[in-house]
Amino acid sequence: MCPKLSFLPRVGQVPCISGTIRDMNVAVCVKQIPDPAGELSLDPSTHNLVREGKLVLDDSDSYGVEMALQLVESAGGGDVTLVSMAPNGETSGLRTALAMGATAAVLISDAALAGSDALGTARVLAAAIRRFQPDLVLAATESTDGYTGTTPVQLAELLGWPSVTFAKHVELGEGLVKVRRQTEAGYDEVECPLPAVVTVTAGVVEPRYPSFKGIMAARSKPLDELTIADLGIDPSQLGAAGARQEVVSVEDAAARQSGEIVVDEGDAHERVVAFLERIKVL
């Protein structure tokens, strides 16, 4: 961390004197999603998630944004650029991440994107990211709404870059990132040359809350809106047609019945023990 940077209005314009590695430009893939606390529904004809109304920054992405801000600070300079895709020009989630301290945002918005799958999304993100050549792309391991969990790796392959998924710790080295990657048994220490795509698990850093100053500043930060045509992508590869998959049906799942509810009056543990005996766990 470079303490001097905390006095700067914008991260990345003045190189830090001590501990400088080099300027570090980080792109963070972020998704704006319907508020998970609200009522969610599927469009009955397209079976796409209804994305009308206000969208929020996916909580999972706030870890990537925070990580990017910290990495740029530790590098002593650089930009954090948000990259997002939405069919309807929605920006409220991006403003949240800008208010946290990101430098700028790129929103690819186009009606042709509705119904895109993970590979189509990766195609769009790759085209946008090629335009500004960041050193590092961060993303969440998966989004909260679609949770496909493969877009970042597909993106890395399309860019021809290495990727490290499920990072629980990330730091910068000389031209590389050092990552602790979650495994079944523990974690692997991985070193990965830049440029690279890294996905971060939740809980790796504590996302900062946007300050009032940050929220005010976010209003005037650059937010570029691009279309598919701007990126030169063939629209037939995107949207529902490009996804080459379809929903056959949506049905209510079989409901599970609830059993007995007991209010603890100091002896509820005995009920639990009796239950465990009955199912022969004890």
């Binding site: 590979l119 496909t148 969990g149 970042p152 790796v153 998924t165």
Partner: peptide
Amino acid sequence: GQTYDGRDVAGRVSARLDVPLLTN
């Protein structure tokens, strides 16, 4: 399998062969 490495392999296969995935 939807595992740490399984997802990585599937994502690379998908982008290399230009085939979509159904996950979860």
